[in-house]
Amino acid sequence: MSSPVLENPTTAETSYVLLYNVSWEQLEQLDVTLAGTSARLTYLDNILEIMSPLSDDHEDSKKTLAMLLEVYMRTKKIRFYGRGSATIGKKSDKTRREPDESYNLGAKKPIPDLILEITVTSGGINKLQIYQRLRVPEVWFWEDGLLSVYCLQADNYIKVTRSTLLPDLDLDLLAKYARMADQYDAVTEYSQIITKAT
């Protein structure tokens, strides 16, 4: 068994390290070793990304966006199941990822229909490659106050201006409220607007 190779040590500008030549068994050992540290592991084709604990900005953005999306789906009576950051991927796929937030629409399924990713630090493993292999229908990225939506069409993700899963959702309006400084006010005002439109 080869030893993992450290490629990108953490610096002041990054909050992750990449290890190459990591077997699935080594990944599982590291998972046990790092339990309780809040480190997040992402794995693709023997490359392991270890992300340091998430920042307050990351968590605030994730929660605000998730709450807004859930208000929309509840108001529109769209049945959904929040999966949070439940780990997806397995040895046979050579992938593993804990999404920031994820949902099934309509019914519970092994793979999420919709994943939210909050990007504070860029670089590392391309998360879309993992989700493409797992056939996740839709992935949303929130970065610097902008929302980018990718829909799986055939075998590739296409960046779109309208969600395929939620075609009536105004993404610009959602993003506007996700950028608001006060989470409570953002969700309250967005809920009022969505309710009036129903």
Rank of each mutant, 00 (worst) to 15 (best):
K108N: 01
N156G: 11
K90W: 08
T42Q: 06
A12T: 00
K62W: 06
L128G: 12
Q26R: 08
R97C: 09
D172P: 05
N104Y: 02
N156E: 13
L18W: 09
I118Q: 09
Y184L: 03
K159S: 14
T195K: 14
D56N: 11
T42G: 04
D144P: 05
I130S: 03
E59F: 03
C151S: 15
E25T: 12
V139C: 04
C151Q: 15
E138M: 09
P110D: 15
L54N: 00
W142A: 15
I115L: 06
K90Q: 12
D144R: 13
V5G: 03
K108A: 02
V139P: 04
M1E: 02
E28F: 10
A175P: 03
A154E: 13
M73N: 05
A39C: 06
Q192W: 08
K77S: 12
S85I: 07
S52T: 10
Q132K: 15
P53Y: 01
W140F: 10
Y190A: 07
D45C: 07
D172G: 14
W140T: 05
K94R: 12
A178D: 01
M180E: 07
K62M: 13
K176R: 10
P99K: 01
I47L: 04
T10Q: 08
V149R: 15
I158S: 13
D185T: 13
L174I: 11
V187P: 14
I125K: 13
I50N: 00
V17E: 15
T95A: 15
S52W: 00
M51A: 04
Q183D: 08
E7G: 00
S122P: 06
K196Y: 08
T161R: 06
E25C: 04
K76Y: 12
D155S: 13
V149E: 03
D172L: 15
Y103V: 02
V5P: 02
N46K: 14
V5W: 05
S55F: 00
W140P: 13
K196W: 08
P53F: 02
V32D: 10
M67C: 07
T87E: 04
T10C: 07
E25N: 14
W24E: 04
T198C: 12
S148N: 15
Q129A: 07
L134R: 14
E138W: 08
A12I: 00
I47C: 11
T195C: 06
L116M: 06
T164D: 07
V139W: 05
S92G: 02
N21C: 02
Y150T: 08
K108S: 02
A186E: 01
T64G: 03
R162Y: 05
G123Q: 09
D57G: 05
K91R: 09
R74L: 13
K176D: 11
L54K: 06
K176N: 11
L48D: 12
E7V: 09
R83S: 04
L147C: 12
I125G: 14
D45I: 10
E98W: 02
A35R: 08
I111G: 12
W24I: 02
L6Q: 04
Y184F: 08
M180S: 09
E117C: 04
D182F: 01
S38Q: 07
K127V: 13
K77T: 11
E25W: 04
D168E: 12
L147I: 15
L166S: 10
G124P: 12
